[in-house]
Design a binder for these strands. Sequence first.
DNA 1: CACATTGTTCAATAGTCGTTGAACTAGTGA
DNA 2: TCACTAGTTCAACGACTATTGAACAATGTG
Lengths: 125, 125
Amino acid sequence: MIIRMSRAPHHPTRDQIELPLLLDCLSDPIRLAIVYSLAKQEQPAEMRCGDFNALSGKSNLAYHFARLREAGLIQTRIAGTTRFMRLRRDDLELRFPGLLDSIIAAAARDAERLQLPDCEIVTEG
Amino acid sequence: MIIRMSRAPHHPTRDQIELPLLLDCLSDPIRLAIVYSLAKQEQPAEMRCGDFNALSGKSNLAYHFARLREAGLIQTRIAGTTRFMRLRRDDLELRFPGLLDSIIAAAARDAERLQLPDCEIVTEG
DNA sequence: CACATTGTTCAATAGTCGTTGAACTAGTGA
DNA sequence: TCACTAGTTCAACGACTATTGAACAATGTG
């Protein structure tokens, strides 16, 4: 599980998404919470990094975002000084049909136990 | 993620099965291969530890079996000098409906890439 | 009994993970 | 220009992981 964090977001192509890496990514409570929040989001289903500040410190979140990107779970779009992330739903569904949905459903069942955010995230405005 | 390996198999009850622990367990290629093999097995779907000797050394397998047990994925039955393990399908299905199946399906898609055993395991007879 | 088989437990190892804080880059706006 | 904001990168740390081999227990067989 080599992680290359430096230089360029390096999103893997759909075919490069690896099952063990994906599962490992979602086995971390913070990353699961991030993915869960993105999954519950309405269209266009984009969120900023700052929306997750309640979960951990900024530098720690940057680490988790990088892992989620490397695993192919999220994609990052840079707009000015903020980055917008969205779940790669279509790619994941094509690569492993039904997998993401069943994991999200499992997480939803344990929302309290996993202390998942209620997803009514205030966009401070 | 504290692991307590010593003394007694310590299978968690169905409700004690934790999603992050389960995903972490299946994110390891060896453990995924073990679970995959058990899932593909016909009734009564039991296999011996020795059936997995091709995957790694015995002591390393014992370590992985312990993790699978602690996560609630498998159950061990001792008969004489051999141990029979089976997937806790029913418990897992009740706890997280559809989850195990979709992970197995995803693994099956990548069977070659993951170098999963062909599951026609010779029981040496 | 001696001896092989099955699998676990223990100790030690190198490598990786998640977390922290400080330093840094890059837009935004006064 | 100076300051503020958003987020990344870096270095360091303690904790955990997977792996190995040797020692151990327990069962079965001659």
